[in-house]
Computed example of a mutant assay.
Amino acid sequence: MTTTAPLRVLVVDDDFRVADLHRDAVDAVPGFRALEPARSIGTARSAIAEHRPDLVLIDNYLPDGEGVELVRSIDTDAIVLSAASDAETVRRALRAGAIGYLIKPFDSRALRERLERYARYRNVLDTADVEQDDIDRALSIVHGGPATTTRSATEQMILTTLGAREASAGEIATECGISRATAQRHLAAMAARGIVDVRLRYGSTGRPEHRYAASRG
C-alpha cells in the first residue's frame, strides 16, 4: 500500500513562543509536518534551500528584513502571518506571490482551515496536466470561495457520452477524446456529488472494474 508523504511546512517568526505555537498547530493537522522554525530571513533561506518545504508560513516583520520580500524571491508557496493590517502591506504580499494572508492574532482554527484548504488545493493540481475547471476549482479552494456547483464543459460532455448506459473511465475517455486520468478525475468528482453512480464489475481476473452510470436520483 502506498502512502502520501506529509506536506512539509516551514514557520518563520522571530518570536520563539509564536513560532512554537504555529509549529504545533501545523503538526496537529493530519497530512502536514512542521520543520524546525526559522527566526530570520537568513535562516529561512538556508532552511528552504536544505529542506525544500512545500509551504512557508512567514511573519512580515523580521530582524533582517520583511517577510514579503522573501516571499517574492522564493519558488515556494507561502502564507503571510502578520500583525500588519494595512491594505498596502496586504496588496504587496499578494503581489509578491503569497497565496494567503492571516492577520495576527488569530485563532488556531483559522490556521488549520487554511492548511486544510491548501491540502485540497494541492490535491486538485497534483497532476501533470490540468484543465481550466481544475484551475478554477483550485483557486476557489485556496481563497476560501464557495465550491462550484455548476457542471464544467468536460463533465457535461462525459454525462452526454454516458447517456443511459454504464461505462468504464477508459471507455468514456476514448469516446470523449480525453485522457483516462482526466475522465477518472471528473467521474470521481461527479460520483462524490451524486451525479453519477459507481458500480463494481468483476471480470475473469477477479479484479473489480469501476463502472459508471448517470444517477437516477
Rank of each mutant, 00 (worst) to 15 (best):
V56K: 03
L57Y: 05
L57C: 01
I58T: 15
I58D: 00
D59A: 07
D59P: 01
Y61N: 13
Y61T: 12
Y61P: 01
L62C: 06
L62P: 08
P63W: 10
P63A: 06
G65W: 02
E66C: 06
E66H: 14
V68Y: 03
E69M: 05
L70A: 09
V71P: 00
S73P: 01
S73W: 00
D75Q: 11
D75L: 05
T76N: 05
D77N: 10
A78Q: 05
A78L: 06
I79K: 03
I79T: 01
L81C: 07
A83T: 12
A83N: 04
A83M: 06
S85R: 08
S85G: 10
S85N: 14
D86S: 08
D86R: 11
A87G: 03
E88M: 09
E88Y: 12
V90L: 14
V90F: 12
R91M: 04
R92W: 01
A93F: 07
A93M: 06
A93Q: 03
L94A: 13
L94G: 00
R95V: 11
A96E: 11
G97T: 10
G97I: 04
A98L: 08
A98T: 04
I99W: 04
I99N: 03
I99S: 00
Y101M: 03
L102E: 00
K104A: 03
K104Q: 11
F106W: 07
D107S: 08
S108R: 13
S108W: 02
A110Q: 15
R112L: 00
E113F: 01
E113T: 13
E113Q: 08
R114K: 14
R114A: 01
L115Y: 10
E116C: 02
R117Q: 13
Y118H: 14
A119G: 05
R120I: 10
Y121W: 13
R122M: 04
N123F: 02
N123A: 15
V124S: 06
V124G: 07
L125T: 11
L125P: 08
D129R: 15
E131S: 09
Q132K: 10
D134G: 04
D134A: 09
D136F: 10
R137T: 14
A138H: 07
S140W: 01
S140H: 07
S140F: 02
I141V: 14
I141T: 09
V142R: 03
H143P: 01
G144V: 08
G145T: 04
G145V: 02
G145W: 09
P146E: 14
P146K: 14
P146N: 13
T148V: 08
T148W: 02
T150Y: 11
R151K: 10
R151M: 14
R151D: 13
S152A: 08
S152I: 05
S152C: 04
S152N: 05
T154W: 00
T154N: 13
E155A: 14
E155H: 05
E155S: 12
Q156L: 13
M157I: 04
M157R: 15
I158H: 02
T161L: 09
L162R: 02
A164F: 07
S168Y: 09
A169N: 03
E171T: 15
E171H: 11
